[in-house]
Design a protein around this nucleic acid. Structure first.
Lengths: 344, 344
DNA sequence: CTGAAAGCGCTTACAG
DNA sequence: CTGAAAGCGCTTACAG
């Protein structure tokens, strides 16, 4: 049990070849005869040998400008939100399928991102995806200098030398506003996810922009933290007033469900008779029979595929410049909204 | 941008010390004077030097019986289920906090586990946690021989030389049965999560055991796959019959919510008047105002802490023998069940 | 406390 | 195609 691990030298000895031959047998493009490869593979199987990926990574430091580890960093926030849990699951599957390993870092706030990235860089990750958070300009520059591509998912790259994949947040907000305006709503409220975060802000900007165009203004505004509980509390505040909103748009579905549950089951309101409700993301629970939440759907599969493609292309081609991809959301109409009078 | 990475030699040159001194400056227990350490640290800061964790891992192969990487493997199934998403989030936070990195592997079926572990072992992980899946005896032996501790979370170790942390599934099933029997239910159904998986089977065994003791037998039985959709479909099958169950116990909360939504909103049944419903896990959505699902709660925080503690203790102390820890669940009574007549 | 040197397990340019 | 050898960036026993 404390015996030394099996190395390529052990395999070489058993197969009667040099250690180099063992190494070549495990490199698909190496020049080696089929006969030798077969002998090596048999010996390897007999000994239970697997090449040491760490040692392989060390060698790459000699032969490439930058050391490669075969690992991709994944920095994740809000994994409790089903939208992100699903994204992590699907993104990690995609990256694994392409032959990279995932070095996961769970962070609970924006402030932890730079430290997480510093740690990941010690492991010589070949690239990194950051879910719903940004990195500092200093850190972006460090990654750029090290040739480590960075993809922001669900966030803007702004002026940073990094790639990004995200939904058109402002446009999504406009879709929600247009639909509520067409439905004849007058007192329209918004529930923000986080005032410091561009995702929520842009959704709100697009939303308010259309209200203003239609000659209305935002009737009420609350701030949550993207959780169900914060949605419920925002709902309680919105409907404890004398004059109540007749429509609510939330920066995420999870918060919308908080508003929906408290309205129906704690305040005995009828949705959509008493007010209309729209969420964002179109998580699976939006479509549950008892919810039927109207929502802005993100084309998740396409977005994740795009993020994976950009990441891999940039890892294989380090001097490609960063790319920004924005996807349009779609309004999915369900039963939580009063419909426009002249239904098409 | 294609310049070589900064190494300890660069720092040594700038600080005017040997490369060994740089290495010692970054090893907390190394013997080095404070003055030298300070000079090294200044030079390191100036150059933006960070020790290469991969190279450090290589060196450890020389000095320890087994190479250490500072990485822990995490093999995960069913991340879409909030119960597991929350577990991954909390477990990874705990392990990170103790100074280890997480090498994540997402698998979609039991069959992928051994291959995932083989890949992870190439990276010389110091230990591995497997969420809701098991490994083969052959693989368990390989890990044991390599001194890599394995923790099964939410599964039994059975005869394998691995540790495990899980809920008392059979006991949880008994709690559910007792409560339904006390409530005077007669036609009691069970919805399995997966017939091949011990978690669901044990919950069913404990459940049926108590029914039998009370002179009843299982009225109906359906099988899902732990998803909301499969719960909904199981519910449709259960209630499309002539004679309907008056109680349903599901192997997970997510499936229970599927039953609940279809019953109330597609079949116009009243829960708990028409039937009582009990889930398992006590996920946050069980407590949402419109759900109020009675459920068996797992003491998640304590279980995750225990898994982390066992893992770390075994990584630091490789000849410790595997440990098995079982935790008791608690019945959380909410509005989805008819209550016992003689309410205590 | 400090430095020179060996060695961790690979990959690959070099020579044959 | 094949083998001997250098080297990736560290850690640490050894000698001073």
């Amino acid at each position: 049990m404390d015996r030394k691990a099996i190395t390529s030298y052990d395999v070489a000895r058993l197969a009667g070849v040099s250690q180099s031959a063992v190494s070549r047998a495990f490199s698909p493009e190496a020049s080696i005869s089929e006969a030798t490869r077969a002998r090596v593979m048999n010996a390897a199987r007999e000994l239970g040998y697997q090449p040491n990926a760490i040692a392989r990574s060390m060698s790459s430091a000699r032969n490439e400008p930058q050391q490669k580890s075969g690992m991709v960093g994944l920095i994740v926030t809000r994994m409790q939100d089903p939208f992100f849990a699903n994204t992590v699951a699907e993104l990690s599957r995609n990256i694994q399928a392409k032959g990279w390993q995932i070095l996961l870092f769970t962070v609970e706030s924006q402030e932890e991102v730079d430290a997480a990235l510093t740690t990941l860089m010690r492991y010589k990750i070949d690239g990194v995806v950051i879910l719903s958070a940004i990195l500092s300009g200093r850190m972006a520059a460090a990654c750029h200098a090290s040739g480590i591509p960075v993809i922001l998912y669900n966030r803007s790259a702004a002026e940073l030398p990094v790639s990004s994949v995200q939904i058109e947040n402002r446009e999504g907000g406009r879709l929600a506003a247009d639909f509520l305006i067409e439905g004849g709503h007058e007192r329209i409220a918004f529930v923000a996810g986080d005032d410091a975060d561009s995702t929520s802000r842009l959704r709100e900007e697009g939303f308010v922009e259309r209200l203003v165009t239609a000659g209305k203004k935002l009737f009420l505004r609350e701030t949550g933290d993207y959780t169900f509980v914060s949605g419920r509390e925002a709902g309680l505040r919105l409907f404890s007033r004398q004059e109540r909103p007749d429509a609510v748009f939330c920066a995420s579905d999870v918060m919308s469900l908080g508003v929906l549950h408290t309205a129906r089951h704690e305040l005995n309101l009828d949705v959509p008779r008493d007010f209309s409700l729209i969420g964002f993301d179109d998580i699976p629970a939006a479509d549950w029979p008892g919810h039927q939440l109207t929502s802005i759907r993100q084309p998740v599969h396409r977005m994740i595929r795009e993020a994976t493609d950009i990441l891999i292309e940039m890892m294989e081609n380090p001097d490609r410049s960063p790319r920004t991809r924005r996807f349009s959301g779609t309004l999915i109409v369900r039963g939580s909204c009063r419909l426009p009078a002249k239904a098409v």
